[in-house]
């Protein structure tokens, strides 16, 4: 690993000042799990590593029924998974965070670091988009908020401008009629990262979905909202046929990654399968009896 200066600002203001001062030569260091690897493989060689380790306020997870959930960017995946408020009010998020990677990485990696690294082969983005998450970004000119869906823009690229730091992720208050599911698929059971994942939320209006969010991640460079399928599913009772039709639509609409862990056609096939399954599960239907 190349040499660098390790800076430990005591306040966010100080951190922002450092980021502005060193610009492209600086990297924000959160949990370190991804950044350390990238630095050791020399994919990144920042001269200044700005550790947010002292900014305890960025670890907090707070909930109130009126405003929803606010997760500090430095909250670790295991913090998110174990937080009683997350478990009680956002079980879909708790489940996602508790199933991500492996126990050690969940104890080291942070949700903010995960989002900022913008590696497609991960879990949080699709899940958070489907939950209508927003991100809070602090910068030299103040704070701005962005819908999660606009935060990751490409492979390993986010909407962060130079000098900016992701500080919080917020989720709207839970609604009793809104339900959600998140499923990840591993290419083989021995894999560590998802080859595809799908997140689904909707408002259940007498057994019929409204305000549908259906988001595909990991199989695509950037987690993608499947708008055509969302429209198709809106106000339509989910049957196995409907699930299959929506799944086919999704498989057609995605623009998959093609690499050593799965070619395009394979990823479409997997996305189709897991989409059909999540829809069937959401409707309490058995997808196992017959293939689509």
């Amino acid at each position: 690993m190349r040499e660098f200066e390790f800076l430990e600002p005591q306040t966010l203001t100080e951190a922002l000042a450092m980021m502005s001062e060193y610009e492209d030569d600086a990297c924000v260091y959160a949990g370190g799990t991804a950044l350390l690897l990238a630095m050791r493989q020399r994919m990144l060689s920042p001269g200044f590593v700005v550790s947010l380790g002292k900014l305890d306020e960025l670890r907090e997870i707070t909930f109130n029924p009126a405003e929803g959930l606010r997760i500090g960017a430095l909250a670790r995946h295991s913090d998110v998974a174990r937080a009683p408020d997350v478990q009680a009010h956002y079980p879909m998020l708790a489940g996602m965070a508790g199933g991500l990677a492996n126990p050690q990485v969940r104890n080291q990696g942070t949700i903010g670091g995960n989002l900022c690294y913008a590696d497609p082969a991960t879990d949080p983005p699709s899940c958070l988009i489907a939950m209508d998450a927003e991100v809070t970004i602090a910068g030299p000119g103040g704070e701005r908020r962005l819908p999660m869906r606009e935060f990751v823009v490409d492979f390993f690229t986010t909407a962060l401008e130079p000098g900016e730091i992701l500080t919080h992720i917020t989720l709207p208050p839970p609604r009793p009629d809104r339900t959600g599911l998140y499923r990840r698929h591993l290419r083989t059971p021995a894999e560590h990262r998802p080859v595809a994942n799908v997140a689904l939320t909707f408002r259940d209006v007498n057994g019929v979905p409204e305000d549908v969010r259906l988001v595909i991640g990991a199989a695509v460079p950037v987690a993608q909202s499947m708008t055509r399928a969302e429209d198709f599913l809106t106000a339509r009772a989910i049957t196995l046929d409907v699930a299959a039709e929506a799944a086919a639509m999704v498989a057609e609409d995605i623009d998959p990654i093609s690499d050593g862990r799965g070619e395009e056609a394979f990823r479409r096939q997997v996305v189709r399968a897991i989409t059909r399954r999540i829809l069937a599960e959401a409707a309490g239907l058995n997808w196992k009896d017959a293939a689509a």
Binding site: H185, T188, P189, Q269, R272, A291
Partner: peptide, 9 residues
């Protein structure tokens, strides 16, 4: 065998 994803367990 998962006939939709090809996964074998």
């Amino acid at each position: 065998v998962d006939t939709e994803t090809g996964q074998v367990r």
